[in-house]
């Protein structure tokens, strides 16, 4: 009887997990395998299996558009990372001051994240448009020489994207970091006050190091958003002016759908996969090292206790 129940349980567990496994293996593993495979072929409009070695990669790194895209993602990624983390942290600190209407404010800050990047992109495109956006508004208030239209100039268009990205990402960063802040024992704060440590020093030397977990989570989330950024670019600039705001994901999609060059698109996609794999491997390695270290520390403490 007991065994029968056990078997039934296991069966239902299998039924429950199989679709997930099919999706994971079918979509991710097989999909990635095909991507890598086609990157070594001379596939044009339709995928074929004529192997050409590293030719697509060679061509990729000679393409100005791709080089601009790579340069852009560095600018976009680093700026977004720094500012979203900084703003998110400041917002979280502000929210942690036992303010009123915390729930309402949190919803407001989280709202951009709930919105589609297409919508975010369109809204910011309007706001940065010289004809009816911020520049127009300020000029109509009397500052006739005011200039703020980054999207028009190829040299500054990427920073317009960064502004929209920060607006979109700060709220969720705040939510994650706020959870981290709340997880810190109130007695730590009391102890620091007794020690007479100024608040900003407590944040920098005690609290932020204690928040490594949530900062890491926020970091990964932003990083993923950076690597796959596509819709924001399409909605705001379409990669322009010229090729100035191309990003790797935009490049990949354009190669497949506009240039009918699947092979080169796949090569670009494979290159995009590399930093993701590297980050995941680093995180995994870090976890293994830190658990080992922790176990060793516990053993040592037990030995001396």
């Amino acid at each position: 009887m007991a065994q029968a129940r056990k078997r039934r349980l296991r069966l239902s567990a299998i039924i429950g997990t199989v679709p997930m496994m099919i999706v994971a293996i079918g979509v991710y593993v097989i999909g990635i395998a095909f991507t890598v495979f086609w990157s070594f072929t001379d596939s044009k409009l339709f995928p074929n299996s004529t192997l050409v070695g590293f030719k697509q990669y060679h061509r990729l790194w000679q393409d100005d558009r791709w080089l601009v895209a790579v340069q852009n993602i560095w600018i976009f990624g680093i700026l977004l990372m720094v500012f979203a983390l900084a703003f998110g942290f400041l917002l979280a600190v502000f929210m942690d001051q036992e303010i009123r209407q915390e729930d309402l404010l949190r919803s407001i800050y989280l709202y951009p994240f709930a919105m589609s990047l297409i919508v975010t992109g369109l809204v910011w495109q309007w706001m940065l448009d010289p004809n009816f956006g911020i520049e127009h508004t300020v000029r109509s208030l009397g500052w006739a020489n005011f200039q703020f239209s980054p999207l028009v100039d190829p040299n500054t268009a990427i920073y317009g994207l960064v502004v929209a990205g920060i607006w979109q990402g700060s709220g969720v960063t705040m939510a994650i970091l706020l959870a981290g802040l709340r997880g810190i024992d109130a007695e730590i704060w009391k102890a620091a006050r007794i020690d007479g440590i100024p608040i900003w020093r407590v944040y920098i030397f005690i609290v932020i190091p204690m928040m490594r977990g949530s900062i890491g989570t926020a970091f990964v989330l932003i990083a993923v958003g950076v690597v796959r950024v596509y819709d924001l670019v399409v909605a705001m600039t379409g990669g322009g002016p010229g090729i100035s705001t191309n990003m790797p994901a935009v490049y990949v999609i354009d190669m497949i759908t506009k240039s009918y060059n699947v092979g080169q698109g796949m090569a670009a996609a494979t290159i995009m996969l590399l930093p993701v794999i590297a980050v995941i491997a680093l995180i995994g390695l870090g976890r293994i090292v830190s658990t080992r270290r922790k176990n060793a520390a516990i053993l040592r403490a037990e030995a001396t206790a």
């Binding site: 024992d185 007695e187 102890a191 007794i194 020690d195 007479g196 030397f205 005690i206 190091p209």
Partner: peptide, 27 residues
């Protein structure tokens, strides 16, 4: 005054020496 807490409230990222001296350094 000096105060001792139930949860110890040590600064986890600092060594014991760091915990003892951080307040004094700041002062």
């Amino acid at each position: 005054i000096g105060m001792v807490f139930q949860s110890y409230a040590l600064y986890p990222q600092m060594s014991v020496r760091g915990n003892l001296s951080f307040g004094l350094k700041t002062a």
